[in-house]
Design a protein around this nucleic acid. Sequence first.
DNA 1: GAGATTTGACCAGC
DNA 2: GCTGGTCAAATCTC
Length: 315
Amino acid sequence: MDENRLIHELTQGLQMAQQLKVNLHSHEAREVLIQKILSSYENALLVLRSGDSAGKALPACSLRPESSISIGSLGSEEFEFEQPVSGQQGQNIISKRRKNSPTIWEKQVRISSPNGLEDNTDDGYNWRKYGQKDILGAKFPRSYYKCSYRKVQKCLATKQVQRTNDDPTVFEIAYKGKHTCNQGDQLASPPPPSPSSPEKHEMTPTHHRQQLSPPSPTEMLPTLKQNLSVNTSDMGGDNVPSSFSSPSTSFGLIEDHHQLHFPNYNDDEELLQVYSPPFISPSESNSFMEQGAGSSSLDFLADVDPDFEFKNFFL
DNA sequence: GAGATTTGACCAGC
DNA sequence: GCTGGTCAAATCTC
């Protein structure tokens, strides 16, 4: 049994319950917190029942649609990912692209990385870079990533990272496909027995917060209130997340312009632990911390579906 | 040596 | 033919 994981989940549930107590008046915060609490305790139960990590018992990604984010109709979106092919490219009969339809991205975010390092675009998942391409009209090449667990767990999630023209420190990240791997749980627990040594991704100089004990949400609250906002200015009117909320702060109500800004936290890794990206499930609550002690600001421009919910900022 | 990254080439769509 | 997306051999890193 993964005792640490069990403790982690229970602790999370407790913290969320405490936040719920504080935010009972906020309908949206209440919803989010209830989800998180349920998720935490479900995971704890899974650990207990399985005698192993919850990740084995239930892939974290499978929890997502219910417990973390909903991405509108994307759940029914079918992508024509390349199937495992044998032989050389010339023998590859299956299309490498979707046919008869444009590439539809499930999610697009914009992340500001003050030091300009792509490392800071890490979202907690383990990605394997499989290509880089110069894009017409773009000053910087676009990087292509697949889920590191593509082979092992047939996870078809991909993402593209593109440095913006106007601001090289800002990365636009587009996600495609859904994670069907169990990275989420594994991220919250000791490194997985992955054949691809994901710790290389996760434990880069900015990726060592797994050893850190997360600050209590209540400790984070004052600072967050001062500094957090989410920029959704790129969203169409329909894309404004209807249920974005912060479990512990008052910025749960959506405005047209929401900008996350985390000033001067370069040296405060623990503080960064709070800023989980909106698309990380509760069970992955610690994952985003790994992406960058060097980050001092993050802009999430979630160009997403109406149902997109920023539910995972606090864990 | 295993796994990750780089990079040139291939492929499909336009 | 151009472009974006992907493959896979070569190379790098640990």
